[in-house]
Structure formats: structure tokens, C-alpha cells
């Protein structure tokens, strides 16, 4: 196996890491803020990809597809938060189980609407020009995915660390009761973060479409990856999600190349190590 092979696989790993970041940063924020492990997050990712596919097929561009998926999934997330999760406030387990039930419902509706055949989202031409560097040729689209994930990570970091809204989110993650006590509108914050997390997952689905393609079962494959990322990185931490996503991207990509039958098992090795020595994750504050 040549250096070119390793470089290409590394780029694949980076691209997968970027997708995983889009998926799990929202998951992590929602979990950190509301203590709800949103088990429909994988389904949002898949539904987002299907919505994007339909928008593309209707003749719109790739950017429109990403935006449409983000908006549709954000609205869906908002409705779920408003009409189902809020009814079950303070009953964390019930909330998690509702999201699990919804995950199945969404997946089956996708199967109904878009049939069971795997479908490829075409990458736009202007993004898939091969990039030449260091004497090698890299697929341009994967470089684009990595760039997007880094930009989103920066924006999220600025939002959480440098704005008043972010300060309120951080305060609520640390101590929701005190945050409420000093007048932070926790309910509105929940809604906002839930919509934001859902939108990120939906847009991630469209971005991932040209690489992963879309098929029934994509949700069930992405969800455990998101869980692993969050367990690795620590709950409620954007930085943790970023590092965890790239570690997972590398482990999964190389596992799949070198030992395809056991890529899932290899995926869990870093998680087991982290759990053994640092149960709250790399960047987590304390176990919830």
C-alpha cells in the first residue's frame, strides 16, 4: 500500500470525521442542555439526505438542497420538541424513548416515500474538481466537506463561547436550576438548541449524501457513530464533539479498509479505553 493510498484514506477519514461532527455536535448540545439523548438524530440525518435528494431532483442547486434540508429538519425538530418532549419535561427516560419511537416512525416513512433502493446524491460539479497537491490528486468534494465542518465548528464555538446566547447555554448546561433562577429563559433555549441540532443533522445528511449515498438503514448506522463520538468527546462540549468526531472518523475509516468485517468492533476500542479511564469523556466535566 502506497503513500498515496494512506493519504487518500486519511482524507476519507477526515471527511467522515467532518460529517460526524455535524451530526454529533447537535446531539451533544441537546444532550448537554436537556439531558435528552435524541435517538432520532440518525433519522434526522437520513431524512435530511432524502429531502436534499428530492430538492436536487426538482432541479435546484446543491446549496439550496442543503438549506432546504436544514429548514425542514429544524421545523420537524421544533414540532417534536414543542408537542412531544415538552409534555414530558423532567422525565428524561420517557423523552429518550419517545425519540427512539420517532426514529422508527421517520425511518419507515422515508422507506414509504423514497423506496428501499440506495440512492446517490450527485456532488455538484463545481465542488468535485480534483485537487492536486504534493504530487497527488485528491477528490475535491471530500476536501470541501472537511472545510465546511471546520467552518461550522468555528461558528458554533463562537456562538457558544462568545455570545450572550452561548453564555446562557453554557450556564444552563452547568446548572439548569440556577440558570432558571437568574432569569434565563430555559424553555426557549431548549427549543432553539433542539432546532439547531436537528438542522445540523439534516444538513449533514445532504453533505454526506455524495459520499455515503442514502439508503434505508443509514440512520441506524449513523446513530451509534454519533453516540460513540459523544461518549468519547464528553457530553455538551463542542470541542469534545470535534475531537471525538475526527478520532471516530479515522478509526472507522481505517478499520473498514483494513478489517472490514470488524470495523464496528474496532470502532469501540477507543470508546472502551476512554470509558475505563475517563468515564465523562475527553472534554466532559462530570458524568451526568
Amino acid at each position: 500500500m502506497s503513500i498515496g493510498f494512506w493519504l487518500l484514506q486519511s482524507l476519507n477519514a477526515l471527511a467522515l470525521g467532518g460529517l460526524l461532527f455535524l451530526l454529533s455536535s447537535g446531539f451533544s448540545l441537546i444532550f448537554g442542555l436537556m439531558r435528552v439523548a435524541n435517538l432520532s438524530h440518525g433519522a434526522y440525518f437520513m431524512l435530511g439526505a432524502y429531502v436534499g435528494l428530492s430538492v436536487l431532483q426538482a432541479g435546484f442547486g446543491f446549496i439550496e438542497a442543503i438549506l432546504a434540508a436544514g429548514i425542514v429538519i429544524a421545523i420537524l425538530g421544533g414540532l417534536i420538541e414543542r408537542f412531544l418532549l415538552r409534555r414530558l419535561a423532567n422525565r428524561t427516560l420517557a423523552q429518550v424513548l419517545v425519540t427512539l419511537g420517532l426514529a422508527f416512525a421517520i425511518a419507515d416513512i422515508c422507506l414509504m416515500l423514497w423506496s428501499g433502493d440506495p440512492m446517490q446524491l450527485p456532488a455538484p460539479k463545481w465542488l468535485s474538481q480534483p485537487i492536486r497537491a504534493f504530487g497527488f490528486v485528491f477528490p475535491g468534494y471530500r476536501v470541501f466537506v472537511v472545510e465546511v465542518s471546520i467552518v461550522v465548528a468555528l461558528l458554533l464555538w463562537l456562538l457558544i463561547e462568545r455570545t450572550k446566547l452561548g453564555a446562557m447555554v453554557r450556564a444552563s448546561v452547568d446548572d439548569i436550576q440556577m440558570a432558571r433562577g437568574v432569569g434565563i429563559p430555559a424553555q426557549k433555549l431548549f427549543s432553539f438548541i433542539f432546532c439547531l441540532g436537528a438542522a445540523l443533522a439534516g444538513m449533514g445528511g445532504v453533505l454526506g449524501g455524495p459520499i455515503l449515498s442514502v439508503y434505508p438503514g443509514l440512520d441506524g448506522e449513523m446513530l451509534p457513530l454519533a453516540l460513540v463520538v459523544v461518549i468519547l468527546g464528553g457530553i455538551g462540549s463542542i470541542g469534545g464533539a470535534f475531537v471525538g468526531a475526527y478520532i471516530t472518523g479515522f478509526v472507522y475509516t481505517f478499520g473498514q479498509t483494513l478489517l472490514p468485517a470488524f470495523s464496528y468492533v474496532i470502532l469501540f476500542l477507543p470508546m472502551i479505553v476512554i470509558l475505563a479511564f475517563r468515564p465523562s469523556g475527553l472534554f466532559g466535566k462530570s458524568a451526568p
Binding site: V96, A261, L275
Partner: peptide
């Protein structure tokens, strides 16, 4: 059992999907 509550739930889900993957 390194985790409790929702973390336990997440780990069991992930481990279950591992066996599916295998």
C-alpha cells in the same frame, strides 16, 4: 456499567449495534 442512566442506555445501544455490524 461505566455509565449510569442515559449514558448506560447509549452504551448498550452502541454495543448492540456492534454485534449487528459483526
Amino acid at each position: 456499567l461505566r455509565g449510569t442512566g442515559i449514558t448506560f442506555l447509549m452504551i448498550t445501544l452502541a454495543l448492540g449495534q456492534t454485534m449487528w455490524g459483526v
